[in-house]
Amino acid sequence: MTTVTLTVNGQSVTQAIDPRTLLVQLLRENLRLTGTHVGCDTSQCGACVVHVNGVSVKSCTMLAAQCEGASVTTIEGIAQGGQLHPMQEAFREHHGLQCGYCTPGMIMSAIDIVNRKGTALDEETVRHELEGNICRCTGYHNIVKAVIAGAEAMAGGMRQAAE
């Protein structure tokens, strides 16, 4: 067993774990944050994407023990004070989800895209940047729309914050 201390959605957490524990297992099983999903064994589907220290990470491909001192944000942690994150809102508004299984990873990746590429996104960029997230339901059409719209909405939010 090994001990890891990290921050998850703003709360400090200390857990004694088997070193084999993946970050996604820590989140789902130890912390009961089941919004982060597992869809494959080979780091390709992206259903497990969370943010570690502000950047997107596949939580199925990181040991929980590697997260010592890290700050982790999951799908459960992005709405602020009962207010949905603009990207969550955009996915709903544009029907960017069907079965919902890939959705948390999609939304976390989408926010990461905006953080890296800015709020004015074109379709080509979004499609390229979604390389690591597989959806079987939507054909991506409405996901791409949602990401672009969510990015624009985030720009609005950022402007507001700046004012």
Partner: peptide, 9 residues
């Protein structure tokens, strides 16, 4: 190379 999340790690 890989995808954004992979490139972050």
């Amino acid at each position: 190379l890989g995808d954004p999340a992979v490139r972050n790690r």
